[in-house]
Amino acid sequence: METIKAKLDETPFQTAGPFLHIGCMPNAIKINKIYQNDLGEIPFKDKQENELITIEGSVFDGNGVALDDVMIETWQCDEKGQFNEDSGFARLIPNNITKKFTLKTIKPGSYKGFDRKTYSPHVSLSISARGLNMTLNTRVYFEDDELKNDPLLSIISLDNVNSLIAKKIKKNSYLFDIFLQGDKETIFLDI
C-alpha cells in the first residue's frame, strides 16, 4: 500500500474556557433567541422511555470538586452496532445543584470493526472545560457486558481498566464518574 503523507499540521487546540455554553449550548444559559434547539439535546429521536438507559456521573478535579462548567459530548452507534452519521451525538452539562451529568440514550450494540475485531458496546466521550488546554477523550463501557475480548480494553492493564467501565446501579441505569487527577485518574485516550 502506498503511504500518503500529510501535507499540513492539524490546527492546535486551545481551551474552550468557562463560557463555552454561549457557543455550544446557548439555550442552556437562557440565550434563547438564536438557535431553536441546542445541538445534541437528544442522541436518538423517536425512542420510547423503556428503550433508554441512563448514564450519570460527575467530573472531579484534583481537589475532589465536581466541575460545573464542563461540557461532555457523547458519540455512539445504535443498538445494532451501526453508526448513523446523523444520530447518536449528545451534549451534556452538569446539573447546577447535583453537579451530575445525565445521558439518556439507547444502549449501543457491539460491532465488528474495520479490523474485523469485535468491539464491546461503548460510548465515546469528549470533555471540554476551562483549564483543559485540549479536549479529553475517553470511553464508557458497561460492567454487565462481555468485555474481555474488546480490542481497547485488552491492551490496558487490569489495575486501571475499571475507570472505563460504568457500574450498574439499577435496571437500565449506570454510574460513570470521571476523575481528571489523583489515584483514580480516568484513562484518557489518544484517539
Partner: peptide, 21 residues
C-alpha cells in the same frame, strides 16, 4: 487541578472515531 497527569493510551482508530457525527 484539572490537567490529567498520566499518559494517554494510544490505540488504532476504530469505527467510533472515524464515522460521524
Amino acid at each position: 487541578f484539572r490537567a490529567p497527569k498520566n499518559r494517554k493510551i494510544s490505540f488504532p482508530s476504530s469505527n467510533t472515531e472515524t464515522i460521524g457525527p
